[in-house]
Design a binder for these strands. Structure first.
Lengths: 137, 137
DNA sequence: GTAATCCCTACTAAATTGATAGGATTAATA
DNA sequence: TATTAATCCTATCAATTTAGTAGGGATTAC
């Protein structure tokens, strides 16, 4: 299941991309338009900023803006920041690999084999999908 | 993240498929070989039986067996039983569709669009992957 | 009749999720 | 310079889910 965090994060990014101007977008505006609890959203945008996807401006007339063109923001990056590893098990994760305690031999493990295929197919989607694609109406 | 339930379930099914005989396989044997807490595994095999994937025989020399040939047991079915809906959000689920409270228009929703693609690509993997494929060494 | 096996229900501890609360910091502007 | 509007940060919390345990009931082979 997709977490609310990810869902809200994607919606917020889309909102910012659609607004499109060079003026920063306020959390309050996004929260209101997308029906997201504002305080919760604050935290989400903060992680996106710390991950380098968003930039921010403090104080009056402050807000958030994209650090790159929407068409340059890949879903792989966004999803990893919001939802964590794309792989469903650590033993097939490219970026967060971890050996299973149980499994003596990964190559003989049926779960491993299956999850590699799922990972690759999901990755293929996220790799050629950008925020630009998402924000197209 | 894949739940332990699913992971254990897949390993157990693979074990049964590999044993391959017509004699039922005991929970204790699977638990020992695959390093799964036996009582936990009992419950998992029970759900697989109730879903019609496994059959069981009670009493001495009882155990679990596959209701179909490994090559006829599709991962779509197994995964739905163990892990639940394949879609990451209910609004793109084929079997468990549910409208989002927030979203006024699904077609305009960026999350919806993205998750349909993820669902389709995952489905493609599960649809042409059977237990037979998994149990190949 | 006894031992081995599946079957069923209830319980529990730990982790995660989805928030909320309260204020600190920063910047524009009247 | 004081005010206001924003982001930033930490702590806390309730509800849910997950992973597992406990205890025994029902069934069957021998």
């Amino acid at each position: 299941m997709l977490s609310k965090k990810t869902k809200y994060g994607l919606k917020a990014l889309t909102y910012i991309a659609r607004t499109g101007d060079d003026v920063p977008v306020q959390v309050s505006a996004i929260a209101k338009s997308e029906q997201i609890p504002q305080k919760f959203l604050e935290g989400i945008l903060l992680t996106l900023r710390k991950a380098g996807i968003l930039g921010s401006k403090k104080g009056k007339h402050g807000g958030y803006y994209l650090r790159s063109l929407p068409s340059d923001i890949k879903m792989t990056d966004v999803m990893r920041v919001l939802e964590g590893p794309i792989a469903m098990v650590p033993c097939v994760s490219l970026n967060y690999y971890e050996k299973c305690d149980d499994c003596p031999d990964e190559h003989a493990c049926s779960v491993h084999k299956l999850m590699i295929e799922v990972r690759d197919s999901t990755l293929k989607v996220f790799r050629n999908k950008t925020l630009g694609d998402l924000s197209q109406v």
